[in-house]
Design a protein around this nucleic acid. Structure first.
Lengths: 137, 137
DNA sequence: CCTATGTCAGTCGGACTGATATGT
DNA sequence: CACATATCAGTCGGACTGACATAG
C-alpha cells in the first residue's frame, strides 16, 4: 500500500478518535486546535491564527465566534492598532483545554503503544521532515 | 508540537500536493484513490469500495458516477446476483491511473528526501502500527 | 496608493442521514 | 422476515471566493 494512502488513513482515524475524545467537552476539532495554538502563543489576531492553522481568515473567524460564544476566549482590541483584535484564553478556556489535553495525551499514548522511545522520536522526525520537504516545493 | 497536530499538518500538505499533481488529469483525490483501490482489486461493488475507503455507499456512488462519466470505469451487473454491480477499470482508466501514479511516486520520493531506507521503512511501520492501535480501540 | 485586517455574504464540494426499492 | 445492495433526496458543517470598510 502506498505511503500517502497510509498517512491519509492514519490522519482520518486519528481525527475521528480525537473528536470522540473531546466531544464530551463540547469542542470541535478545529476549536480544540485553535485553543492549543492560542495557549502556546497568546494574544494572536484572527489573521495570525488563520495563518498558523493554514485556513482563510473567514474560516478562522467562524471558529473564534464559536469559542467566544462559549466564553472560552476573550477578544480585546489591540492597544496600538485600531483594527487588530487579539485573542486570549479565558479561565474557562484554560481549564477546558487542560481537560482535553489529558484525553488527547492518553489517546496518543495508546496510538504509540508498542513503539519504543527511539521509534517514537524517529516518527516525529520523519513526519516533520516530510512536511518540510513538501512545503519546500 | 503535539504529534497529532504534526500528522494532521502532513496529511493536509500531502493531500494538497497530490491534488495538484493529478489535477492535470482532471481527477479529484477521491477519484484517484478509488481508481487505485480498483486497480489493486478489480470487480468490487459499490458497497465493497465504500468499506475500503471508509465512506458511506452514497458517497462512493458519487465518486463512481464521476468516474463513469469520464469513462474511466465500466459498471457491469454481477452474473449471479441481480442487484450487485461490479466496477472495472476501462483502458482509459488504466492509462490515466498509470500517469497519475508516476506523478505521485515522484511526489513521494521528494517527500522522503533525506530519509535513508531504514528510516523510510520505520516510518511505514510506525504509521501502520499507529493506525492499528487506534482502530483496535 | 498599497497593504493588512476584520467581517458580511454567497458558493461549493464532500460526507452525512433518511427513505425506498429490490435481490438473496 | 432479516439483511445487503443500490440509489434518490435532503441536510449539514467546513472551507472556499468575492466584496467591502477601515487602519497604517
Amino acid at each position: 500500500m502506498r505511503l500517502s494512502y497510509a498517512i491519509g488513513r492514519l490522519d482520518h482515524t486519528l481525527s475521528q478518535a480525537i473528536e470522540a475524545a473531546i466531544a464530551a467537552s463540547g469542542l470541535k476539532l478545529a476549536q480544540y486546535t485553535t485553543l492549543s495554538i492560542l495557549a502556546a502563543q497568546p494574544s494572536l489576531s484572527n489573521a495570525q491564527l488563520a495563518r498558523r492553522a493554514f485556513v482563510r481568515p473567514q474560516s478562522m473567524n467562524q471558529v473564534l465566534a464559536g469559542l467566544e460564544r462559549q466564553e472560552l476566549i476573550t477578544r480585546r482590541p489591540d492597544a496600538e492598532h485600531g483594527r487588530i483584535i487579539r485573542m486570549e484564553l479565558s479561565p474557562r478556556g484554560h481549564t477546558l483545554l487542560a481537560t482535553c489535553d489529558r484525553h488527547v495525551e492518553a489517546l496518543e499514548a495508546a496510538m504509540l503503544d508498542g513503539l519504543d522511545p527511539e521509534e517514537r522520536a524517529a516518527l516525529s522526525r520523519a513526519v516533520a521532515r516530510a512536511t518540510e520537504n513538501l512545503r519546500a516545493r
